[in-house]
Design a protein around this nucleic acid. Structure first.
Length: 110
DNA sequence: GGCGTGACACCGG
DNA sequence: GCCGGTGCCACGC
């Protein structure tokens, strides 16, 4: 089998899908859940591919600072911010308010 | 097979 | 406490 199944990518999607509504998580948290805390960058890369997957609410994934860094990768505007606000999360200037309060720790559900 | 890139995280100054 | 540079890991060409 070739690398048709991107374990790493699929693993990220699996976790992001588990993000409850009104909650957010960080790349590092996801990467850590995968056992690659330092590979948070890869998580972002995986999310880029997630653009083709609707089940992956990438807009709920932000960096550890609670900043919507990847929003620029979305449709192009504050769509990501609007989505988060729609979930009950306050976002100002691309930054999540009470980020840690809305922080959701991803875990590998076997 | 090798180099460059990437939506971060951590360390040092 | 803030800013800059480096490091890790996997994908794309």
């Amino acid at each position: 089998m070739k690398s048709n199944n991107d374990n790493f990518f699929e693993r990220v999607y699996e976790i992001v899908r588990q993000i409850p509504e009104g909650k957010v998580t960080s790349y590092g948290a996801i990467a850590k859940a995968l056992g690659a805390t330092r590979s948070a960058r890869m998580v972002g890369w995986a999310m880029n591919a997630s653009h083709n997957i609707e089940d992956v609410p990438a807009h709920r994934v932000v960096n550890r600072k609670g900043l919507l860094t990847g929003k620029h990768h979305f449709d192009g505007t504050n769509l990501m911010q609007q989505l988060l606000e729609n979930e009950g999360i306050k976002v100002i200037d691309n930054q999540i308010i009470d980020f840690e309060k809305h922080f959701w720790e991803p875990k590998v559900d076997s």
